[in-house]
Design a protein around this nucleic acid. Structure first.
Length: 846
RNA sequence: GCCCGGGUGGCGGAACAGGCAGACGCGCCGGUCUCAAAAACCGGUGGCCGAAAGGUCGUGCGGGUUCGAUUCCCGCCCCGGGCACCA
């Protein structure tokens, strides 16, 4: 008697067997095409959640599929193990971040094995292991040698809850910390930066080289990099009488064509010249009010667009280079020190912010670029001198138009990328008072963190030699284990760590006590997987050449900018160092949607969690894997519901029963009709080929939901066949083929069940996961008869079943002869009869 | 404001290149089995009209192209996401 499907009796058995056999270990194999399938490695947060189940199930199906297609597949796993949650947890539980981290890694390892994922465990990397983070320090030193490390003072993001600084990318939403969602403040601090801005243009350009990335992610990165074309313009400082000094202030503008409309000049409150200008003057009090107010504000308030712009006159002036006009310098909080030069030429007629400011403080608003349909154009079309100082508008005009009141440029086209813009820039350049310029919104990456559980920055502060790198042969700087975070300690509390000698002069020096942003650890782990156990080098370039780039990367959309931008940057630097031979690390990217419950992301703090372990305990891992893939296409958000689990359970139970029955029957050599040609056998044979083709196509475009539904269709057809065709008339060879094929198709989705069927029920000698993907013949999937819907004026009135080989004329005639069609076209003129071969017949009558 | 997605039955979703809208599954309804229930299995299931045959409406809204539009074009609405006082 056939056993029924019992996942609890088989899953752990096969997990142990695969582990013991090292079934998923791979090495470079020049005889096969390679595939590198990678899911973003997890932070060891404790229990796995549904987001993990989804992410890693997707990757597992893809990896297993490519393996069955005969590829050499690298499918590794590891842990992004440095980071703040470990410190917070250690403080809470009065232990050590390392203890917590390694315990969680163990727990998650068990969970991943319980899910049956096909990882090559021999390549595991854990970023807080010394043999991993030492290479992170090595990278830092190499970046330093290339001039890509800078320690500088600047206004930086401070998270008061994490008690550390953050990179710009790590401030999300309305100015909150990406990790803890606290409101971030600006502080002036000296910190370490990696000069990602040196690669801004390439990071932007190469997005076009990534057709395998979602447009959404590329748009987000392009947005973030924020390239603006324009010009720098030098304004000369002058005194009240207009007498020029020898000092200039440079601004960046995207609209040099509007320069004649500059009626005031602005400095950011943090601009170093502000204090100098107003010290001891009658303007000092008002200006310093603006400066102080800006300092007090959080990043959110400061950048809120609908806020009233605060400002004050400094008592100073600059000269507008195009018309020699004396322009007053104001201070305003809407000018940002971090962007451009911290100084702005204000053109209120062409910029809404300047417009608002001018209206608030009664400053002139001379028009310089007019829309083609603007009534003012009649009056000003040929006016070169400034005769109008105020516009009758309620908003600024920032579009393309005609330049007026603009000296020799009057009459030219103005606007972004306009002739006027180029002409003014050229004019300035010829006089040395300006030049074309490109500005990026992207800032350098702030990587130092004032926390313990991270990779120590390998630098030494020497009172004589300044800041010096730790020499390569003294790496790694080992993270000491005796730091007690429960007492709020960091490396700065441990003299035995920071007291050292200068590697250059040998004098007493202080070791850096900041650690690196965890995103530095995750920016190169995918390369280390290629050669994870290498003690002598970060990796062997032959190995990265074989495996890289990652063919399929899979992870959450939340890293659209963060991790994915940083990794692209690292890869480009490694290329420039000669460490790799490609410029982009991830050829194809799949950003899987979030798993939600009641419309919100599942999270422990919200208390809306469905634990994967509970589902596994009831249904087994295979049902969970298949179900989460069946619920929705992988890139869409998924609203979790237990309701469909029973459906997947029933499907697997039915598939088991069908396959087991057929296997036993064919083993017992029951009666058979060979190559049966009755309609039911022909249908089943067609379905077998159609479904293999469909499932293959679907996995390649990640439509796991429709792949599974196609398998259900095949099973439905196969079971109908068994029910409807008497036993002695069945084509048992065909049934056996269908049962084996179904097992192979199921293998990537439900690896335990497929393995049990393959080895124990069919009695095959070798694991199903080493089998070849079933072949299919598109010709065998085609029917020898087709059914044409026949439309009359766009409405289906009847159906015509006819031989697939029938000519168009034959189809047309047969369609027109159908009784219902005759009825419908009676008394009308047939104007047109369209036959779309294999699709439909469309008759137009009038 | 700018830039990306998305809107299809009671629900999750399908329709790959303009060709039968709603595959597959859930749920629901009816049935078989059972003393009964659960499980399992079989059948039905977009709305409206109709006893049925059949008709008719229907993919966010309004137009357009086409023999034919969920699909292409134009103009909107709504939802989600990114950027945003970036000069």
């Amino acid at each position: 008697m056939t056993r029924s499907y019992d996942p609890h009796a088989i899953e752990e058995k096969w997990q142990a067997a695969w582990d013991a056999a090292g079934l998923y270990s791979v090495s470079e194999d020049a005889s096969k095409p390679k595939k590198y399938v990678l899911e973003m490695f997890p932070y060891p947060s404790g229990d796995i959640h549904m987001g993990h189940v989804r992410n890693y199930s997707i990757g597992d199906v893809v990896a297993r599929y490519f393996t069955m297609r005969g590829m050499s597949v690298l499918h590794p796993i590891g842990w992004d193990a440095f980071g703040l949650p470990a410190e917070n947890a250690a403080i809470k539980s009065n232990s050590h971040p390392g203890t917590w981290t390694y315990a969680n890694i163990e727990k998650q390892t068990a969970s991943f094995k319980r899910m049956g994922f096909s990882y090559d465990w021999s390549r595991k990397v854990v970023t807080c292991d010394e043999d991993y983070y030492r290479w992170g320090q090595w990278i830092f030193i190499k970046f330093w040698e290339r001039g890509l490390v800078e320690r500088k003072s600047s206004p930086v993001n401070w998270c008061p809850s994490c008690k550390t600084v953050l990179a710009n990318e790590q401030v999300v939403g309305d100015g909150v910390c990406w990790r803890c969602k606290s409101v971030v403040h600006k502080r002036e601090l000296e910190q370490y930066f990696l000069k990602i801005t040196e690669y801004a243009q390439e990071l932007l350009d190469d997005l076009d080289e990534l057709p395998g990335w979602p447009d959404r992610v590329k748009a987000m990165q392009a947005n973030w990099i924020g390239r603006s074309e324009g010009a720098e313009v030098d304004f000369t400082l002058c005194d009240e009488s207009g007498e020029p000094s020898d000092r200039t202030i440079t601004v960046f503008t995207t609209r040099p064509d509007t320069l004649f409309g500059c009626s005031f000049f602005l400095l950011a409150p943090e601009h170093p010249l502000v204090r100098e200008f107003v010290a001891g003057t009658e303007y000092e009090a008002a200006v310093m009010d603006v400066v102080k107010a800006a300092e007090m504000e959080s990043a959110i308030d400061r950048s809120s667009a609908d806020k009233v712009k605060r400002g004050a006159f400094t008592g100073r002036y600059v000269i507008n280079p195009v018309n020699g006009e004396k322009v007053p310098i104001w201070v305003s909080d809407y000018v940002l020190m971090e962007y451009g030069t911290g100084a702005v030429m204000a053109v209120p007629s062409g910029d809404q912010r300047d417009f608002d400011f001018a209206r608030t403080y009664g400053l002139p608003i001379p028009p310089v670029v007019l829309a083609d349909e603007d009534p003012l154009l009649a009056e000003l079309a040929d006016v070169r001198e400034r005769v109008m100082h105020e516009v009758p508008w309620e908003t600024a005009f920032a579009g393309d138009g005609v330049m007026v009141q603009s000296g020799e440029f009057t009459g030219m086209r103005g606007g972004k990328a306009s002739e006027g813009m180029q002409a003014v820039t050229d004019w300035l350049a010829a006089r040395g008072q300006g030049r074309s310029s490109i500005n990026f919104r992207l800032r350098d990456w702030l990587i130092s963190r004032q926390r313990y559980w991270g990779n120590p920055i390998p630098a030494i502060h020497c009172p004589v030699c300044g800041l010096v790198p730790v020499p390569e042969d003294q790496l790694p700087v080992v993270l000491p284990t005796n730091v007690d975070v429960t007492k709020g300690e960091t490396l700065a509390d441990h003299p035995e760590f920071y007291e050292t000698t200068c590697p250059t002069c040998g004098g007493a020096a202080r070791r850096e006590t900041d650690t690196m942003d965890t995103f530095t650890c995750s920016s190169w782990y995918y390369l280390r997987y290629c050669d994870a156990r290498n003690d002598a080098a970060i990796w062997d370039t032959d190995k990265t050449d074989y495996w890289m780039p990652v063919d399929q990367y899979i992870g959450g959309i939340e890293h659209a900018i963060l991790h994915l931008l940083y990794s692209r940057f690292f890869t480009k630097v490694f290329r420039d160092m000669g460490l790799v031979t490609f410029a982009e690390p991830f050829t194809n990217l799949l950003t899987q949607g979030m798993v939600k419950l009641d419309g919100a992301t599942m999270s422990k703090s919200r208390g809306n969690v469905v634990a994967p372990e509970e589902i596994i305990a009831k249904y087994g891992a295979d049902t969970l894997r298949a179900y989460i893939l069946f619920m929705a296409p992988p890139d869409k958000d998924l609203e979790w519901s237990n309701d469909g689990l029973d459906g997947m359970w029933r499907f697997l139970g039915r598939a088991w029963r069908y396959i087991a029955e057929v296997a036993e029957e064919s083993a017992s050599g029951a009666a058979s009709v060979a190559d049966a040609t009755d309609p039911a056998s022909k249908l089943l044979r067609r379905e077998r080929h159609r479904v293999v083709g469909k499932v293959s196509d679907d996995v390649e475009r990640f439509q796991f939901n429709t792949a599974l539904s196609a398998m259900m269709e095949l099973l439905n057809t196969a079971m109908d066949y068994r029910r409807e065709v008497p036993a002695d008339q069945r084509d048992t060879a065909l049934e056996r083929d269908v049962a084996e094929t179904l097992t192979l198709l199921l293998a990537p989705y439900v690896p335990h069940m497929a393995e049990e069927l393959w080895l124990e029920v069919f009695g095959k000698p070798e694991s199903v996961h080493l089998e070849s993907w079933p072949a299919w013949d598109p010709a065998a999937a085609a029917s020898d008869e087709v059914e044409y819907p026949v439309q009359v004026n766009g409405k289906v009135r009847d159906r015509l079943t006819i031989a697939a080989s029938a000519s168009e004329d034959a189809v047309r005639e047969a369609a027109l002869a159908l009784p219902k069609i005759v009825e419908n076209i009676e008394g009308k003129t047939v104007r047109k009869v369209l036959v779309v071969p294999g699709k439909l017949v469309s008759i137009v009558v009038g």
